[in-house]
Design a binder for these strands. Structure first.
Lengths: 347, 347
DNA sequence: TTGAAAGCGATACCAT
DNA sequence: ATGGTATCGCTTTCAA
C-alpha cells in the first residue's frame, strides 16, 4: 500500500529520466524512443500513477471538464439528456459537471462565468430560459453547444427540436380530433423553443380558421406545481375554456392532470392535453400521456458529438442539428364532444 | 470589455502591492492593513477579478469540489438527493460533481480513485451497491460521507434510513391487511440497506408466524425494466405466488405495475405492493403508490451538513444520522382476499 | 531523443 | 504590515 501519491518527478527519478520525457511518454507525444516510452508506461501502470488534473489543467490552461448547465436536473427530460451527454463525453475522456439554474437567469450567468475560473474545456447550455446570452458567451474562448435553444445571430453549434413543427403537430392533432378552441401553456416565454412552438400552434389556428385569443395562451415555467395551478385556474371556469391544450412539457402535464383528477375533470373526455418530451413516466399505463417526443437520446448524443468535434478541432465548422419531433398519441387526447360535461358537475 | 483575464499578478502590479498581499486580502486573511485591504477589494470588485480555481487548488492541494457518486442520476430518488446536497453545498461555497456508476462496482471504484487526481475536497457516496469499499476508501485523506449505505467497521460520517424499521413497517402493513404470504424484491443484494430491509421483513414473518420461502425473495437491481420483468415472471404462475410484495424502490414498483396493468392483474385487488422512496411520481393520482418515505430532503441536507462539518474541521467527531422511515399508505395495498382471482382469467 | 528551465496562477512561509 | 521566494505538479519550449 503506497503511502504517498506518485508525482511525475517521482516517476522520473525512479527511472532516471527527466520529467519532460515522462510527460511526453504518458501523453503519447513524439520525441521519446520506443524503449524508454515502454519502460515509462510499464512503470506508470505498475505503480498506478496518473497525472494530477489540476496541475495539468493549470499548465495547459484547460481542464478536461465540460460544464453542463440545465434548468433542473430533477426533470427527467434534463436528467436523461445529461445522462446521454455525460456518457458520450466520459467515453472520450472528458468529465462533466452539471449545474442547476433552477430556471433563474442570474444563476445561469453565474455558472457561465465559472468557465474562466475553472478553465472548463467547454460549455453545454440546456437551460430553458434566455438571458442576454449573446454578451455573456461572447467573452468565452471555449466551445459552446446550445441545446434546445438558440438566439438571433448565434453561429456556433446547436442541436434542437424543430419546435415550430412540434407545436404545429401538437395543435394539428387536436384540431383533427375536432377541437375548435385550443389553448396553449408555455414554458418561460423568453425561451426560443417556446416561441417556436407557439408559432407552430398559431399557424394551425390560422390555417384552419380556429379562434385565437390571448386569454387562451398562458405562461408556465415547466414546473409540476405550475401545471397544477394553471389547471386549477382553468377549472374554475371550465365551461368557458378551451376543450384542449398544448402544454409546455410532460412535467407540466402531470401537474395539470393531477389537478384535473382531484376535481373530477376527466381526461380526455372533458379536456384533451398534449405535451412535450415523452419522459419515461409519460408512457406508464396509468398515465399514457399524448406527447411530442424530442428524441432525447439522439439529442444528447448529437450535443456530445458537436462538443467533441470542436474540442478536437476548434476551427471546425459549426453545425446546427435539427431533430424532427414525433407525436406519440396515447390517452390524454380524444375527440371533441359538445356534450362533454353532461352528467358532470360542470354541466 | 476587458480582453484578458486578470491574474493575481495583474492586480498586484496595478495597485503597486505584492501578490502575497493581494492573496491575503481576497482570502480574508490577517496581515494586511484596513486601507490596503479595502483598496484591493475595491479594485478586485471593479474589474471582476476572481482567482483561478485550478491554480488555487494546486497550491492548496485541494479544490472546492465535492464528488458525489450515485447509482443513476435519472432515478428521481437520486436526483432529488443530489439536488438538495448540491444546493446546501453550493450555498457554502462548494461545487458538486456528480458521477453515475450505473450500478456498476467497477465504475464506482474508478470514480473514487479520481478523488486524488482531482484533489476533490470530499466525497459523498450514494451508490446502491457495495464494492470492497473498505480498502478503496482507506487511502483517501478527504472527508467521506456515506448516504444510505454503510459497512462493517466504518466509523466515519453517514446518514441512512432505519432500513430494518422500513422493511418491518412495509411488511407489517401487508400483514395487517391480512396477507399471509408476502414476497420481497430486493435491490442489489450486496447493499447494506437492502440487507437491513430484508431483515426487517423477515422479522415480521417470524413474529407473526408467516411462511418464509427463499423463492419468495427475488433479486432486482432498482431498475424499472427489472421490476417489469420480475412481475412478468410472477404473473406466469400468479396463483402460486405471494399475494403481496415489498419492493426495493418506487422505480421497481412502477415497472412492476406497468406489467401488471398490461396483463390485467389488478392492483391492489389481486396483488398488493409497497415500495421505498416516495418519489414525486408515486403520489400522482393515477399512480398512488403505497411507499416508505426516506425523507429525501432531510437526508440530503444532513449529508451536506456532515460534509461541511468535516470540511470545516477535519478532526470533528463523526456522526451517524439515522432517518426514521415513514409509511405512506396509498392505493397499491389493499386487504387480502382469498377470492381475489374470481372473475379473472387467473381463476 | 533527451533534459534543463521557464511558466501556469495561486498560496504560504519567512524575512524585513 | 509587507513582500520575496519557494512550491504545488505538470507542460512546453528550446538547447544540447
Amino acid at each position: 500500500m503506497k503511502e504517498n501519491k506518485y508525482t511525475i518527478s517521482d516517476v522520473a527519478n525512479h527511472l532516471g529520466v527527466s520529467r519532460s520525457t515522462v510527460s511526453k511518454a504518458i501523453n503519447n507525444a513524439p520525441g521519446v524512443s520506443p524503449e524508454v516510452r515502454k519502460k515509462i508506461l510499464t512503470f506508470v501502470e505498475e505503480v498506478g500513477y496518473s497525472p494530477n488534473t489540476l496541475a495539468r489543467g493549470l499548465s495547459k490552461g484547460r481542464i478536461n471538464i465540460i460544464a453542463l448547465i440545465v434548468g433542473d436536473a430533477r426533470n427527467p427530460f434534463y436528467s436523461d439528456l445529461s445522462f446521454y451527454i455525460q456518457k458520450a463525453l466520459n467515453e472520450n475522456g472528458y468529465m462533466v459537471m452539471v449545474f442547476n439554474t433552477e430556471y433563474e437567469e442570474k444563476r445561469e450567468v453565474e455558472f457561465i462565468n465559472l468557465t474562466e475560473r475553472f478553465n472548463f474545456a467547454g460549455l453545454i447550455l440546456i437551460s430553458a430560459q434566455s438571458s442576454d446570452l449573446k454578451n455573456v458567451l461572447k467573452e468565452l474562448k471555449v466551445p459552446v453547444v446550445l441545446v434546445n435553444r438558440t438566439f438571433d445571430d448565434f453561429n456556433g453549434d446547436a442541436v434542437f427540436l424543430d419546435n415550430f413543427q412540434g407545436g404545429y403537430m401538437a395543435a394539428m392533432h387536436l384540431m383533427e380530433l375536432g377541437h375548435k378552441r385550443i389553448g396553449f401553456v408555455a414554458g418561460h416565454i423568453t425561451s426560443s423553443s417556446v416561441k417556436q412552438r407557439l408559432n407552430g400552434y398559431l399557424q394551425v389556428l390560422k390555417n384552419y380558421y380556429l379562434p385565437h385569443s390571448e386569454n387562451d395562451i398562458r405562461m408556465g415555467d415547466l414546473k409540476m406545481e405550475t401545471g397544477y395551478n394553471i389547471a386549477k385556474d382553468i377549472i374554475k371556469d371550465l365551461k368557458n375554456q378551451p376543450s384542449a391544450f398544448v402544454l409546455a412539457n410532460d412535467i407540466t402535464a402531470l401537474g395539470f392532470m393531477q389537478c384535473c383528477k382531484e376535481n373530477d375533470v376527466n381526461i380526455p373526455e372533458m379536456i384533451s392535453i398534449v405535451s412535450f418530451d415523452d419522459i419515461v413516466y409519460a408512457s406508464l399505463k396509468d398515465i399514457e400521456l399524448t406527447t411530442v417526443s424530442q428524441h432525447v437520446q439522439e439529442m444528447g448524443e448529437q450535443a456530445a458529438r458537436l462538443m467533441l468535434k470542436k474540442l478536437d478541432d476548434s476551427s471546425s465548422k459549426s453545425e446546427i442539428i435539427v431533430i424532427e419531433p414525433n407525436l406519440i398519441i396515447r390517452n390524454t387526447t380524444g375527440p371533441f364532444k359538445s356534450d362533454r360535461f353532461a352528467n358532470s358537475k360542470f354541466r
